[in-house]
Each structure stands twice: as C-alpha cells, then as structure tokens.
C-alpha cells in the first residue's frame, strides 16, 4: 500500500528546499550548460569539416549531452535527497516518521523527473538558440528511450545511496562519481562497435548503452529499434529490482548496526 500524501510531503520538502536555496538552481544548470557549450561548439566545428552523410550523426552529440544529463539528474535526485538530510541532521526525524521505503523512493523518483524536466527544458532552449538544434524535431520514438534513462538513473541513485548509508559520509563522493564511472561504457557519444571486445561485454550489460545505441539508430533509419528498446526495458527491470533490494537490505543492516543513528551524531 502506498500513501500518496507521504510522497507529496517529501516532494514538497524538496520544493521548499529548492526555492529557499538559489545556489541549488545554479548547481542544477551550471554543469549541463558548460558541457553543452563545449560539445556544442565541437559539434558545429566538426560539422563544417565533414561530409554531409556523417553530419546527422554529429548533430546527435548535442542530443547526447542533453540525454546524458537526464540520467545524471535522475541519479543525483536520489543520492542528494538523502544527503540533504544528512547535512542538516534531519535523518532521524525522517526515519521516525511513518514513511514506507517505497514512498521514500517514489518521492525521489518524482523529484528526479522534476529536476530532469527543468534542465532538459533549459538545455533545449539554449541549444536551439546557439546551434539551431531543435529537440522537438527529433523523432517521437526517442521518448521511450529517454524514459529508460530516467529509470536507469533512479537505479544508480538507489545504489549510490545504499553505499552512502552503508559506508557513511566518507562515501559521499560516490553520489557524484557513480554516473561518470559508467559513462565510458555507456556509449553516449560513440557507437558500441568502437569499443574493444572486453568493454563491449560490460557495455551491453548497461541499459544506457542500449538507449544511446537505439537513439542513434532512430536518427539514422527513422524507425523504432525494437530490440534496443526491449533490452533497455529488460535490463532496467533487472537493475531496479536489484537496486531496490539493495536499498531495502542496507536499510535493514543500518537498523541492525545503528548506522542511521550514527548519521545523527556526526
């Protein structure tokens, strides 16, 4: 049973926090904009110096920057949501409130969608202004892929939060590093076939790889690559089940070892 009032309360808290601290807005926009500028100009430069056939592919570099950010924001939403409570010594107040784990995770997923929507909107406007890259002109078939990035980011967020609960604030950097650890394998900017065989094995096990492969296929053929989508959804289901289990398990370990109460006294 899920109490939506509780999810609403947890999301409301994030909104209050967000509007109370403008610096967070900057954090949410600064990195993606910097990335977009670097990749955007690289893209226009490459476009001018390559033949027409390759140029559609290059245009997608801008799309890749934006879509990668979907994954990153979604992962961050979970990890930062927990860390906010650690930083403000509010952990115990939250964990003695009548909140079920699913409600807590549901709230972080919702926050992830909101964060993503905000950054994607702004990045899309900027890339349209600077590079005439219109995200709305992209194929509708990209949407289910974007949704898969949200899901994968959520799983990664649960995993990084579980590690933070288990290993304490020392593991805080994981909150920032996790997505970048997998980025080389996720084939964001280049096709899977570019990678050596041993890397391809790892890559194939990540939903993100199938998402970005699928997106490139759409831009090339204009058709929905069903296989890629099935792989993305299938792997995501497995990751979510695994990450959800890990999160629940670590919370239980925390209740045995007194890890939550340690966060209160630090």
């Amino acid at each position: 049973m899920i109490n939506f009032g509780v999810i609403h309360a947890l999301v409301l808290r994030y909104l209050y926090l967000f509007t109370r601290t403008p610096i967070r807005l900057i954090e949410l926009l600064f990195w993606p904009i910097v990335q977009l500028l670097v990749w955007g100009y690289l893209t226009t430069y490459l476009q001018r110096n390559t033949d027409a056939e390759f140029s559609g592919f290059i245009t997608f570099l801008i799309g890749a920057v934006i879509f990668w950010d979907v994954l990153f924001r979604s992962q961050q939403a979970v990890a930062i949501y927990f860390l906010e409570d650690v930083w403000t010594r509010n952990v115990l107040n939250v964990f003695v409130a009548p909140i079920r784990t699913v409600e807590y995770l549901g709230a972080t997923f919702t926050v992830g969608i909101m964060r993503t929507a905000l950054t994607v909107t702004i990045l899309s406007l900027i890339s349209y202004g600077l590079y005439h890259f219109n995200i709305l002109s992209l194929h509708w078939a990209l949407f289910p892929f974007v949704f898969n990035l949200l899901l994968f980011g959520w799983s990664l967020g649960m995993i990084s939060t579980a590690l933070i609960v288990r290993w304490g604030p020392a593991a805080e950097t994981l909150a920032w590093a996790t997505p970048f650890l997998i980025q080389p394998f996720a084939c964001v900017f280049y096709p899977l076939s570019e990678l050596p065989a041993w890397m391809q094995w790892i890559s194939a096990s990540l939903p993100a790889t199938h998402v970005f492969e699928g997106m490139r296929a759409i831009l090339k053929t204009g058709e929905l690559p069903v296989t890629n989508l099935v792989w993305a959804f299938g792997l995501n289901a497995a990751y979510m089940a695994g990450a959800g289990w890990l999160f629940g398990h670590v919370l239980k370990v925390a209740r045995i070892k007194g890890l939550l109460t340690k966060f209160a006294s630090q």
Partner: peptide, 22 residues
C-alpha cells in the same frame, strides 16, 4: 541531537511534517 532542515522557514518545516503525519 537532530535538527529540522535549516534552510527552510519554520512554517515550511511544520507544513512538511504535518503532511508526513497526515
């Protein structure tokens, strides 16, 4: 040994916890 989120205003914190407890 705990705090309520320090960035929020007093009424905002109470609003959030009121909602959490229904």
């Amino acid at each position: 040994y705990t705090n309520l989120p320090s960035n929020l205003r007093v009424w905002q914190n109470l609003h959030v916890f009121a909602k959490l407890y229904g």
